[in-house]
Nucleic acid binder design. Structure first.
Ligand SMILES: NC(=O)c1ccc[n+]([C@@H]2O[C@H](COP(=O)([O-])OP(=O)(O)OC[C@H]3O[C@@H](n4cnc5c(N)ncnc54)[C@H](O)[C@@H]3O)[C@@H](O)[C@H]2O)c1
Ligand SMILES: NC(=O)c1ccc[n+]([C@@H]2O[C@H](COP(=O)([O-])OP(=O)(O)OC[C@H]3O[C@@H](n4cnc5c(N)ncnc54)[C@H](O)[C@@H]3O)[C@@H](O)[C@H]2O)c1
Lengths: 213, 213
DNA sequence: TTAGCATTGTTAATAAATAAACAGTAACTG
DNA sequence: CAGTTACTGTTTATTTATTAACAATGCTAA
């Protein structure tokens, strides 16, 4: 299914809705109201209904939204029909945290490979994911048609890893190192930094504190 | 220093500017242009100048911005003068990744304590941070005037940890578990999920692919 | 059977974020 | 020393995101 120009933020929230819905999915509870979803994500019910409107989903006036149906619909919209394959580069704390957290969670995204340079990690399987030597990256990426790369190597290494991923035909990169990367426009790049999150919390906690005291 | 109603996004970018600036800070290079900062963060130079205008910083017309001065000013604005203390709850993959990444990076935020339930971790020091039994949380938090908590325990445990943090007087929480939390309005809550980031990359990579092919 | 209620879906209004436009200025150039 | 260049700083316009407003629906219960 394809919907023209879904807002950036809506895409993000759809992912969050699905995560929350999967969490409350059970035999007993089959439906959910917009205000229930809203409460879980700390947003307004209107926002939820608006997003669902954008993807053309209609709920039941008295019962709310069918959880299972909605999960499926979100999948049809944000997942790729044929599935996408993912690799993690750098099997340290963060790479491992990602893999074990991700395990078994999404059927349309498959974690195919990890890469590292440490001999103790290479040719072993971590949480179902085989780890290869970094030199094999281009080969494995191409062979398995991997289209997304996650970078969790020491930051000095990040630019060369990114370049190698791009040359191997990757379509999207999720960069966890603080090193700024440059990739061509056809590669989607997303970055995240824990310290920025922490500093945001610190700033607004401080501000709140002044406001509420 | 206090600036009224700094936009949310600007606060986030100020943290990113500082990170980028710290990275390029050196004896040789003392100044930087808005377009250089912009390039590192994949935003426009106008955006950078606008943010700097909001915090009242003026650069040099020909040389650009004084890196050191700007780093200091950002600190004056987003850091708390007296500093803020931070604790990590759950010393697993993610908690460790956070602590070792954070180590030595920010002078105004001090990582004071970790908490866990695993006897092998308790009463040991990880990367300079002592780990205590979870039962000691209220005591340690209060004694050390810790105002920010990072939650990296298994998700089922998250709500009780959050409650305990709030009761101990915490002012801000950074939640890495996928469990929705409820905290009073005076506690600032920030959440992050790697899978949402990955799904965003997957979605836009797919979209890009259609657009560029 | 009809008034009241809780909910959805949609449009309209508002607010926030980004980008464009451009004036000002100091250094350099011929 | 007039013109050109490459920036900054600020205002204005545009785009994007959120919130408010409210009509429509169908169940409940008086
Ligand atoms: N963005 C964030 O929020 C965040 C948080 C924590 C860490 N980090 C950063 O993420 C990166 C990883 O952090 P970590 O705690 O997992 O570190 P880590 O040291 O535990 O893991 C790094 C891994 O990369 C491997 N490696 C080194 N060079 C390599 C190469 N050339 N090719 C492939 N693998 C290589 C190492 O063997 C190791 O297994 C670091 O750059 C760190 O600064 C970012
Ligand atoms: N948001 C994200 O992007 C993301 C990514 C990875 C993992 N996660 C989540 O973060 C959490 C931690 O992930 P991880 O990979 O570090 O897991 P982990 O199992 O490596 O670490 C969890 C730690 O918490 C400790 N613990 C368990 N119960 C506790 C309690 N009651 N009090 C204190 N400590 C307790 C365990 O002993 C362990 O050390 C999990 O909930 C996981 O689902 C989130």
């Amino acid at each position: 299914m394809f919907i023209k120009n879904l807002p950036h933020k809506t895409v993000e929230r759809l992912s969050q809705y699905r995560r929350a819905l999967l969490m409350i999915l059970s035999k007993e509870k089959t439906h959910v109201f917009s205000h229930e979803i809203a409460q879980m994500l700390h947003i307004t019910p209107v926002q939820v209904r608006r997003d669902l409107m954008l993807i053309g989903y209609s709920g039941n006036l008295r019962k709310g939204y069918d959880i299972k149906e909605l999960i499926d619909l979100i999948g049809k919209i944000i997942d790729s029909e044929r599935g996408q394959r993912v690799a993690v580069v750098g099997l340290g704390n963060l790479g491992k945290a990602f893999i074990s957290y991700f395990k078994g969670k999404r059927s349309k995204l498959s974690m195919i490979a990890a890469f590292d340079i440490n001999p103790e990690k290479i040719n072993r399987v971590f949480d179902g994911v085989p780890c290869y030597h970094i030199n094999q990256l281009p080969e494995i990426i191409k062979q398995n048609n991997i289209s997304i790369g996650i970078i969790t190597v020491p930051s000095e290494q990040a630019p060369e890893i990114a370049e190698s991923l791009v040359l191997s035909g990757i379509k999207g990169i999720l960069n966890y190192t603080p090193k700024p990367l440059n990739v061509p426009a056809y590669v989607y790049l997303e970055e995240y930094d824990m310290i920025t999150s922490l500093e945001k919390v610190a700033f607004f906690a401080k501000k709140n504190d002044e406001r509420f005291k």
